[in-house]
Design a protein around this nucleic acid. Structure first.
Length: 383
DNA sequence: AAGGCGGGGGC
DNA sequence: GCCCCAGCCTT
């Protein structure tokens, strides 16, 4: 019975003690919510869909109004779409409402208007996924299924100090295995709601020292004061796109300028053509616009005003020098090589300057894959 | 596996 | 003002 929990040092007695502590607390402290006054599966269904990504306090008035207007599955199956959306207006995620109607029609057609009572059948209904099926199944039909939402993930991760990344689908299995053994088979619906209430009111995302937790004696992260570490969740970093200009600056002797990336930049310590982000439209850029970032840079270095000019006009450049794309884990650079002619003597100019050189891609100055791509692109064109 | 959905709450 | 939010569907 406790094959998985045994690995965490839990025996049957500890499991029983945990359930008792949790459910006693729930019986004393459960919130009085409209859908908790009933076992009507339709009400539970509507409330669970409304509660997805939406807070309890927001849902309550919507729920009351909804079941008054559409008191049965049959009424929902036949409702006019505009009327349905008026009932949902302001809740957001409007496909939830449209899915409700489709599911109601599925129930009318395949289940004689009665909410199905098994997990596979519930999961076939539009808008009902693993969480919602388990919530309805356990609360309305006593199915012994953990309803794993964000609260259960957080609470479970803390109790067992689980390092599994909850943002990975594969981690779901680890939580489910544990919760199938932890859930009280006598009161599965109350167990789920107790865990959710606990997560929503006591073991919240930022309350790391819940002295009033009814299960703190069972909570390894409370005992070890590690609650702040759980749950482990990989930051969802969205990959942003950036337009960059990479200047290939050459003087009359043929020396080319490289600069070393500093600690506050990507590719720290490696040598590159000077690279700057830009937000101009390349196709219609003037020579001035293209050279301005570079002039600003030299100004900053204290090298003063230099004699710079483009070696190609912008439109020529765009055609002759295809863009180089470089993908980091969290951002993508689309780089345009900009060849620039410098009248001044580069070596004399940068003598004594830290982080600038004319001799990169030798054995002393490491260059990145990005820089290799930039050079290859340039040399490919000038072969 | 990633992106879209919509509004509210936390910081 | 920005960031985040674990539910489900679609691509």
């Amino acid at each position: 019975m406790t094959q998985v929990l045994a690995k965490y040092g839990w025996n049957d007695q500890k499991v029983k003690g945990f359930r008792a502590a949790l459910l006693d607390w729930y019986d004393q402290n459960k919130r009085d919510l409209p859908w908790r006054r009933t076992r009507n599966p339709y009400y539970i269904w509507i409330s669970e869909i409304m509660l997805q990504q939406t807070q309890v306090a927001t849902v309550i008035p919507y729920f009351e109004r909804f079941i008054k207007a559409l008191p049965t599955i049959e009424a929902l199956a036949n409702v006019d779409e505009q009327e349905l959306l008026l009932l949902w207006q302001g809740l957001g995620y409007y496909s939830r409402a449209r899915n409700l109607k489709v599911a109601a029609q599925q129930i009318m057609e395949h289940h004689q208007g009665q909410m199905p009572q098994t997990m596979p059948e519930l999961l076939k209904l539009k808008g009902i996924g693993p969480y919602t099926a388990a919530a309805i199944g356990s609360m309305a039909f006593d199915l012994v299924e953990p309803a794993i939402d964000g609260n259960l993930l957080r609470v479970t991760a803390r109790i067992f100090e689980l390092d599994a990344d909850i943002s990975k689908p594969s981690s779901r299995k680890i939580f489910a295995e544990i919760l199938y053994e932890l859930i009280d088979p006598e009161r599965p619906g109350d167990f789920n709601q107790a865990m959710m209430d606990l997560g929503a009111t006591v073991m919240t995302p930022t309350n790391y020292y819940p002295e009033d937790s009814p299960i703190k004696a069972y909570d390894q992260s409370f005992i070890n004061e590690t609650a702040a570490l759980y749950p482990v969740k990989k930051k969802k970093i969205k990959n942003t796109k950036h337009q960059m200009l990479a200047y290939r600056i050459q003087d009359l002797k043929g020396s080319v300028l490289y600069r070393q990336h500093t600690a506050d930049e990507l590719l720290t310590g490696l040598w590159h053509y000077p690279i700057f982000e830009y937000d101009i439209v390349l196709d219609s850029a003037t020579e001035d616009e293209l050279l301005t970032p570079l002039e600003d840079y030299f100004e900053q270095l204290g090298l003063g005003a230099l004699k710079l000019k483009l070696m190609m006009n912008p439109s020529q450049m765009i055609v002759a020098l295809p863009k180089v794309k470089h993908v980091f884990s969290h951002r993508t650079w689309n780089l345009q090589v900009v060849p620039v002619q410098l009248e001044d003597d580069l070596q004399a100019l940068i003598a004594g300057s830290q982080g600038l050189t004319t001799t990169a891609s030798d054995q002393e100055h490491p260059i990145s894959t990005l820089q290799q791509k930039l050079q290859a692109r340039w040399e490919g064109v000038n072969r």
